[in-house]
Each structure stands twice: as C-alpha cells, then as structure tokens.
Nucleic acid binder design. Sequence first.
DNA 1: AGTTAGCACTCCACGGTGGCGAGTGCTAAC
DNA 2: GTTAGCACTCGCCACCGTGGAGTGCTAACT
Lengths: 367, 367
Amino acid sequence: MELSERKLKILQAIISDYIRTAEPVGSRTLSKKEGLDYSPATIRNEMADLEEMGYLTHPHTSAGRVPSDKAYRLYVNELMDKPELTQNEKAIIANRLRDTTVDFEKTIEHAASILSEITNLTSFAMTPKKTEDVIKYINLLSVDEETVVLMIVSESGKVSNKAVKMSVPYTEESLELLSKTMTYNYKGKTVSQALTNNIIANFETDVVAMSGMAEDVMPNFMKTLEDMLNVNLYMEGLSNIFDIPEYSDISKAKSFIEMLTQKDEITKKLIERDDGITVTIGDENEDSNLQDCSLITASYSVDGKLVGKIGVIGPTRMKYSKITSIIEYLTENLTDTFKLESGETADESSEDADENGPENQGEEINE
Amino acid sequence: MELSERKLKILQAIISDYIRTAEPVGSRTLSKKEGLDYSPATIRNEMADLEEMGYLTHPHTSAGRVPSDKAYRLYVNELMDKPELTQNEKAIIANRLRDTTVDFEKTIEHAASILSEITNLTSFAMTPKKTEDVIKYINLLSVDEETVVLMIVSESGKVSNKAVKMSVPYTEESLELLSKTMTYNYKGKTVSQALTNNIIANFETDVVAMSGMAEDVMPNFMKTLEDMLNVNLYMEGLSNIFDIPEYSDISKAKSFIEMLTQKDEITKKLIERDDGITVTIGDENEDSNLQDCSLITASYSVDGKLVGKIGVIGPTRMKYSKITSIIEYLTENLTDTFKLESGETADESSEDADENGPENQGEEINE
DNA sequence: AGTTAGCACTCCACGGTGGCGAGTGCTAAC
DNA sequence: GTTAGCACTCGCCACCGTGGAGTGCTAACT
C-alpha cells in the first residue's frame, strides 16, 4: 500500500498531537483539525490502514492511536520541518555558553547543563577522545630533591602533568637532557602512537647514561599518556527522565537510572555513534533499557580534529524538530568556541557575558 | 517517665526488627523473640508508653509500631553495638581500595563506588577542600612563541597548570625571572591567602620591567588558584535510593534525585558537617527532601591536613552499626593511603593488588 | 468509489463494597 | 504486675458496575 498525501497528513497530525499531549489520538480530535476536513469515520479508515502498515499502534481497542517507532523515523527523516531558532533563542544559548569562566572541561559540563535546562530532558556531554592529539612538548621540572614534575603539552593546548618521585639523584642538566630526548623522540606522535610504540624498551637502549632516571619517569609518562586518553562524561537533568510516563514504574526507573549512571558503558556507546547529528528512536537502540527512549546526539570538534559528543535522551515522544535545532546550534557554537580560542585560554568574555542583560539568563525556550 | 530496662529491650528489638524487615513490628512478633518472654498484652502496654514518650509511631491504629527518629537517635548513641569488621571484610575493602591504578581523584571516586556497593546505598565522596594547601613552587615554561604554561605545585603534591597565550614577546630569561619572582612572593602562602592578597595589584608595582607579561599571566594565575580550590564530588549508586520505600512515589523520587544531583548544594552541606563520623537522622536534616533519610559521613585526610568527606545516604531504617563500621574502616584506609604515598605517586601497588586472590573482589558484606 | 452517519461493541478508569487479616486498646481475671 | 479475651479499627484486595472514549462495521449517501 502506498502512503497517500492524505495518509501522510493524518500521520503527521497524530505524531505532533501525541508529542504535545502524550495522549493517544482519536479520530474525532483529528477531524476537527485544520486541513483535515473529513469525518471521523473516514479518518478511522485511514488510521486502520496506517496501523496495518506499521505506523500506528493501539494501546487497546477503545483507545486512540499512538505513533510507532517507524512513524517517528518517517517523521524525522521526511515529515518534520526543522525550524531555524529565533534570534532570541540563539542569544540565550550563546550567552549562557559564553558565561563560563573556567576551563575546557567546565565548558563542556556547562554545555550539557544548558542543553538539559532548555530541553527539559536528560543531557550528556563527552569530552573529546584524544587519541589523535599530537604531542608537542615534554618537560621535566625539578620540585625538590626527590620530586620532579613531568609535563606533556599537546598540539591542542592540553597540558597534562604528574609528580614523579625519583629514586635516584638527578641534576638540573640531566633532567633537561632527558626532557629534550623525550621531546625529540615523541614530538609529533599522537598519544596513541606513543603508547603503542613500547616506549620504555626503546628508551633503555637509547640513553643508557640515565637509565635510572628513565626508569622512574617512563612508567609515569605512560600513565600520563593513558590519562590523556580518558574521556569524561557529564550528565545533567537526570531527574527529567521521570517525566517519561514509561518510567513511572519504579523498577523500570531504577534499572534505567542504573544504566545511565554506568558512565563507561554510555561513553563507549557515544563514541561508537556517528559524528554529526544522529537520531535513534526507540527500538533502534540496542540496549533494552533504551527501547522506550530516543537519543539525539551531535558532535563538536576541538581544534578541527578531536571530536566530542553531546546529546539528549528522552521519550520517543520528544520534540525532535526543536531539539535537533537546539543541539545543532549548540554544537556549532561549541566548535566555534574551541576553534577561536585554540586551547585553554577561553575566558576573556567572562566580564561582558551579560551584555544582553541578565534578564535573558533565566528564560526558557519553549515549543 | 523513665526508660526501664525492659522498655529499652523492647525498643531495641523493634528497631532492629524494623531495620531488617521494613515492616511495622507487632506485639505478637516481639513476644516470640528471645529474651522477651512476656505476653503480647504486656508488650502492648510497654509499647503504648514508648509511643507516648515519642520513641514509636503508629502508621495507623491496626498496624505495628515503627521507630521514630528519636528512637534511632537513642539507638545510635547508646543502644547499638558497633561491631568490629571481620578480617575478611576488611580485606575486601582494603583490596578493592588498593586496586586503583590511577590518580588521587580516581581513588576517591573508587572509594565512593566501593562504599556504595558494599552498603547497597547511595554514596558520595568529596575531594579535600584545598584552601589550606601551601604553594611550593611556581613555574612558567615556554611552549611556542606565544604560548607559555603556568604551573603551580603545592606542598600536598598537587600540580595545577594552565596554558597562557602571551600578548607580548618574551624571552626565556624574562620567563624565568617572572617565575622566580612569583615563587618568591607566594611560596609558603596557602592558596586562599594568595587569593585574598590582591595579587595583581601587588605585582604591577613590584616589577615594572615585565608588567606586560605579568598582565597576561596574573589573571591566569588567579584562575588557576581558584581552580585549585574547587572541590569535586563523586556520587555512586544513585539508583539504590529506589529501595527506600518512601521513594516508591515517583514525584518524591524525582525531587529527591533532583536534590542529589545538585552537586554544589551537596558539597556545601558536606563541608559544613563536622569532621569525624557524623550521623544525622531523618528530621535532624534541615533539607525537607532528606527528612526520610539518614546521612552518615566521615572525613579522611590527605597529608595530615586537607580534609575530604565520604559518606552514604539511605533510609532512616539503615544498618547504622554495620555501616558506621564500614565507613570508619574505609576512611582510616584512605587516610593511610594518602599519608604513605605523599602525593600523586600512589600506584606501585597496582601489580600485586590481587594478592589475596581475585575471588574476593565480587563479594559482598552482609548483615 | 469514496465518504459519511449510525450503532453495537470493547475496554479502561474510577468509585463503591465487603471480606480478610493484622494488630491494637481495654477490661477483667489471675 | 501480668495476661487472656474480645471488640474494634484500618489497610489491603478483589470484585463489581457504571460511564466515557473510541473503535470497527455496515449501510446509506453523493
């Protein structure tokens, strides 16, 4: 059976009505809609067809129709119109995003919380996976007789460090030599390359003279590199999931929250997802705990390379169009921020962040 | 009215029964208990007295008795016996705690998750408030023509850094001079002292020759110091709160989770709490969302000075005795860890962490 | 052939009812 | 002071019965 013009219209009406009200939609309600000037009976016939085709379901005989995941998929792919955000809405997002005084991590966390507040959904944001980050600079710095600080600076401007207890005496000169040798050996390599290259072995043969120092430093070097690969996940608005009617059942809510709080799992899944805006709806999600939810994620980039993810999780019955627009705009903004400022010095704007007046801060973007 | 020996016995029996079963306790049940060889009627009389004195309540006429917060308080203060953990239980905690390969932050997070798993409650752990941390060392390091890295090392071994974009040209020598001057000025001061001293103003007058560089560096210095004051809060086992019968009501559960996920608020409250083991029961908590819960917190220290907190939140009906012992042991262990290793190099044990065999890892401490 | 009115039917939601069980409070006897 | 006995209270639960919303089908209409 083909999806006639009229069927599409009806389907769209059902979907948007259901998204708005969370109530099954009946034929009478629909027939009163603008642009659907048919009797309830006619609409019922069409709905029966749509149900047969898998676009609608029926909680029980005498209830209205509810869109299926298949219907949402059609809606997202073809039916919905993605509205441009208004200037005002954009200003709210941009202002709040700029209103971060601290570092990169905090900005990401902040972005998640903005997203959650605006959408009234649970949001999350993942810092970039830094596998491809390139080592720029390695330095060892004397702190006291037995402590040095190992410091790794990467092309993306990230600085990682670790205090190292030295078991052998050292001089400023030997420290500098070791720093230079390490920089020479690893500069230009990505973090993951450096890690796979079996660093320690290489070193022992290369620079026998200071093998004692290297023995102290290298394990810490590896650990710091590993640390640099770590991805942080921030989650905000967790309690919003209680607005999903499916989770008014406590045991379901519990297992859902259990799943969401397993950051490692979530992170893995986020990494696997495609870059760009990605929507998965209901049973398109593998995880059984997610089958009543939809996920919208998008990626932002840092320095044009490293890719982080941000997104929301909510009921399949969510405002796909609006939310997609919001996330799109938010990630564009993030990417811009991290291009412009090239690294950590992203905070001159803290003084004039409220130039559009503080009255914008608390507003909410609706509909 | 006095609390006779017999009343205390009955009260204790009710409390421990109720903690175990979560069901109101009736007179018949009690009279069958070891050591309470009175008829139900006698016990009923005593219970009526206890209720009048405020130690028991009554969900409704024909239900058994339930301990009041006042009763729990009495129990915690006087009635309960704090059992020493068995060697096996201690080994489980110690082993799992040692099984952290990474840094300080991760260890704290790990401790929270251990605590949550063992107690089946929601746990949290706060990293120390570093107000009292003493600045040991400040360094500026050239990365490229326009970027330097500012690094602050503290007595407790914590290293903080920040990449700084320089708006004026600089030489290695001027960098070193600035580092030395800063170190000279701030070494020995605590982070909070340094912050209150109006650093920037001081500097402009002192070292006119490099005021351009200082103008770039000082704001970042302040921000980094502020950053050092940040306290991180980790929370684990959030979903365990659904086991509290009070929160089988969705709207209550929602507002509860809302409260718990406001990290700033929670952090503030944790900081305010006394050091050492502290138990607050039900309505002893100011927050209205916490009035059905009890909180047990304890403090651990790092380097003998900085104090962090760790604790659990659960139903007033929790196993106070067991949980107190667990938290006590855990914090002792944490304090030891951070004394021994003095700083960041806390990970040699990663290889032999499972010396007692991996079969211990999954076990749970019951009763 | 497509559309519509009419009607019987289905099923949920909701409020009331009655029996059961657990546990109490009181009284009177031990 | 302790206990047995008994009436009473209340929550829980299962069981209606009714009302409303919405459907599917059929037959009539355009």
